[in-house]
Nucleic acid binder design. Structure first.
Length: 475
RNA sequence: GCCCCUCUAGCUCAAUUGGCAGAGCAACGGACUCUUAAUCCGCAGGUUCUGGGUUCGAGUCCCAGGGGGGGUACCA
């Protein structure tokens, strides 16, 4: 063997790691300073800090559970000089007795250890971490090990997804997976991404919503279904918009709007309790009380509260147009009264709604998949939960009548023909499914990324999406 | 799309009115047996995002381009 071969680093293929940092702190919390536990532990992780004192050396080792100190001595630690020569960021596995240092820090007193990976690239600043946003998003791997706050957000996201699944399963919902490739994009009003299937020689659309497939499943007899669906919308990027994002959609047979409200507020309150520790949370320095029940108010009431104007669907269209224009809406002559009212609401009211509130009674003109309101003509049975000035979701008592659904689709198709490229198209198979019979059904969609933002007090969707869409890197 | 802000060493940041491009940390070499962002000594580190321009002289001023951020439009 040459000298070269001797020094070439060959990582082990497998390492037996028996302990995690957080568990050691848990198990040895009562160990006194300067005492040994008599227990041997093997921990692995990244060397984050190194304090070399000559014949004694301390290192801060971090694993996915937290951090624990390594203590090494010239006398008691094998290859001591190599250990003190480690670089910040190197991965190691170390075995030794769990002790508490004289100064009180829980430590593994290293007897045996092994290098697992070298950090050949520069470490971020050990105090400031990495703050450059471009690097944080492009090199999330560096962000995650340099920045504690980033790790916490994604751990919270994972828990939110897991808790949501369990919450729904406990209520009798079944998780399903429906197609991402849609021959006809539907279930929402948005521009889709288009791709092409070679063998079938046909264009396919990446889904903008799973809605129509999920309701087909209710037709098929699955009475409570949900999907945590990645959806894709071909629109601009912003702090609140990533082209791919995650939506929870659920459908419950025999249920209506009121059931969807109850699920929404219970789910969000449950997640807040589990993730934040309270149903009263702080967002952007301001308090939000998510404790159920949430306020219910109609769209028209809220417009009156915030814009000081009383609107209704029967007003002369010219008057609605004038009110909209007065509030800074760029009025499209093709819009009907419902769209005008919605525009006024979005311009004047939505961002002002801090509280959790269920905004109800949306015009049916802008709700092509929702059932007619049981008592208010021209309105649909639809609500949006608004928290901290943002839509958290969207819910309806579903439209189940195939004849009415066909009329709504055709209405949309006319809008599309008139140039609205976000309008829906007629989905004949969906209509056929409705003809087999969809029972009364409540449906709910929740924007999970925004929910994670709310519960982690983050203000850009890029802070809650591990690898957000960015322009390609150059140079 | 449009408007505004921003880009300096591996990281975090300085550099007066245009006047020799610097510090801390990391890295590298060395000292140290209880440190906690260890400390101390030493050394090295640059296409100041790119390309033009103004000027005796540009990190700094001007123009164009690129990346990022924020706002705005569309949307969740």
């Amino acid at each position: 063997m040459s000298d070269d071969a001797d020094t070439t680093f060959r990582p082990p293929y497998r390492v037996e790691v028996t302990d995690r940092a957080a568990d050691l702190h848990e198990a040895h919390g009562d160990l006194a300073a300067g005492e040994g536990s008599g227990v041997t532990a093997t921990v692995a992780g990244r060397v984050m800090l190194l304090r070399d004192m000559g014949r004694l050396c301390f290192a801060t080792l971090r694993d996915s559970s937290g951090a624990v100190q390594l203590m090494a001595t010239a006398k008691g630690t094998e290859r001591y000089d190599e250990l003190t020569a480690l670089n910040l960021g190197d991965w190691v596995v170390a075995t030794g007795e769990v002790v508490r240092s004289k100064k009180g820090e829980l430590s593994v007193r290293v007897e045996r250890w092994q290098l697992l990976a070298k950090a050949r690239r520069g470490f971020g600043d050990k105090w400031h971490g990495i703050t450059d946003t471009d690097m944080r998003y492009r090199q999330r791997y560096a962000d995650l090990w340099a920045n504690e706050s980033s790790r916490r957000v994604f751990q919270a996201r994972s828990r939110i997804m897991s808790l949501t699944r369990r919450f729904l399963e406990d209520r009798g919902f079944m998780e399903v997976e429906t197609p991402v490739f849609h021959p006809i994009p539907g279930g929402a009003m948005a521009r889709p991404f288009v791709t092409h299937h070679n063998a079938l020689d046909m264009d396919l659309y990446l889904r903008i919503a799973p809605e129509l497939y999920l309701k087909r499943l209710v037709v098929g007899g699955f009475e409570r279904v949900f999907e945590i669906a990645r959806v894709f919308r071909n629109e601009g990027l912003s702090p609140r918009h990533n082209p791919e994002f995650t939506m929870l959609e659920l459908y419950q047979a025999y249920a209506d709007l009121s059931d969807m409200m109850e699920i929404t507020e219970q789910l969000v309150a449950h997640l807040a309790r589990e993730v934040v520790g309270s149903t009263v949370i702080t967002y952007g320095g301001r308090e939000v009380d998510l404790t159920p029940p949430w306020r219910r108010a109609t769209l028209l009431e809220l417009i009156e509260e915030h814009a000081g104007v009383r609107l209704d669907l029967d007003m002369p269209i010219d008057e609605l147009r004038r009110v909209a224009a007065d509030h800074g809406v760029e009025v499209d002559p093709a819009w009907g009264p419902g769209k005008l009212i919605l525009e006024v609401y979005e311009k004047t009211t939505e961002a002002e709604l801090w509280g959790p509130v269920f905004v109800t009674d949306y015009p049916k003109e802008v709700s092509p998949l929702a059932r007619d309101h049981r008592s208010k003509p021209g309105m649909a049975e639809r609500f949006e939960p608004i928290v901290a000035g943002r839509e958290l979701g969207n819910a309806f008592t579903e439209l189940t009548d195939p004849e009415e659904q066909r009329r709504r689709f055709e209405e949309q198709a006319r809008a599309k023909a008139a140039g609205d490229d976000e309008a829906m198209v007629v989905d004949e198979d969906y209509l056929r499914a409705l003809e087999y019979g969809l029972p009364p059904t409540g449906g709910l969609g929740i924007g999970m990324d925004r929910l994670v933002m709310l519960l982690t007090d983050t203000h850009s969707i890029r802070d809650v999406v591990l690898f957000p869409t960015l322009r390609p890197e150059v140079g």
